[in-house]
């Protein structure tokens, strides 16, 4: 992070996110019609679907970064994978929670054990496990390698979640847009959905960039060339003033 521009880039990204999100809110709440069958609860689609999309995107980033980490053993790739996984876990949880709120008025129930819902819950658990595996043991590099393995294997579940509504019978409806058999959608609804997906994606990039700076500064003492002796108490690093060293 020696480039002088990250803050400027973040400000631009933040401004773009705010503009696109405002457009998405206007389209979703004012321009888009109320659904003929489902009524107002259908508007939850404009946050439920972008959350699920961003989770897919984040887990794809975890896959790429994990492969790159295993090839290069560079901790920067590991930090990218971690930041993306944290975003993906949050978005998966959000998609499940919003889906539940959508399901109650439309399906009649908060939750059903259908393949889409179950595979999504498994997806959440796998990536919570991914974040947990990172902390097993004290060896930063070994933890990163183990996490990368989980990050690669765990991605298998993403297409399973997405195509669960095609491969199996589910209560959950099939996808309307990202589908082998796209279905009709009111153009204003589609515009609202597109804007919301763009806003979520921009916000996701912004969040990951900010998180990466935190993770990089947390790694900085470890990444430095001069490692402390392995048996020295870690606190010594923090309390010994520079003048006494």
């Amino acid at each position: 992070m020696t480039s002088p521009s990250p803050c400027t880039a973040d400000r631009l990204l933040g401004a773009a996110t705010a503009v696109v999100a405002s457009v998405a809110v206007a389209l979703a709440l004012v321009a888009a019609p109320t659904d003929a069958v489902q009524g107002e609860p259908q508007r939850l689609m404009y946050v439920h679907v972008p959350a699920a999309w961003l989770a897919y995107l984040a887990f794809a980033a975890v896959l790429v970064a994990s492969v790159a980490h295993l090839l290069t053993r560079d901790l920067r790739w590991d930090r990218r994978a971690q930041a993306a996984a944290e975003l993906g876990v949050g978005m998966t949880a959000l998609a499940i929670a919003l889906g539940s709120v959508w399901g109650r008025p439309v399906w009649g129930v908060w939750w059903v054990w259908d393949p889409r819902l179950v595979t999504t819950a498994v997806l959440l658990l796998v990536y919570v496990g991914y974040l947990g595996v990172r902390g097993l043991g004290d060896d930063r590099a070994a933890g990163a390698r183990r996490a990368a393995a989980v990050g690669i294997l765990g991605f298998v579940n993403v297409p399973v979640v997405h195509f669960s509504v095609v491969w199996w019978r589910t209560l959950h409806q099939p996808a309307t847009v990202l589908s082998p058999d796209p279905a009709p959608m009111d153009p204003w609804m589609a515009a609202a959905l597109g804007a919301a997906v763009a806003a979520f994606t921009l916000a996701g990039v912004l969040v990951v960039r900010r998180r990466l700076r935190d993770l990089a500064s947390a790694d900085a003492p470890v990444a430095g060339a001069a490692r402390p002796p392995a048996d020295a108490p870690a606190e010594a690093l923090a309390v010994v003033p520079r003048a006494q060293r």
Binding site: D35, M45, V106, T176, A183, M185
Partner: peptide, 16 residues
């Protein structure tokens, strides 16, 4: 349980 389809449109009688 209700299983609605994946089509989304405005009601026939208005803009919605």
């Amino acid at each position: 349980l209700v299983r609605h389809d994946n089509e989304y449109r405005a009601p026939a009688g208005g803009t919605g």
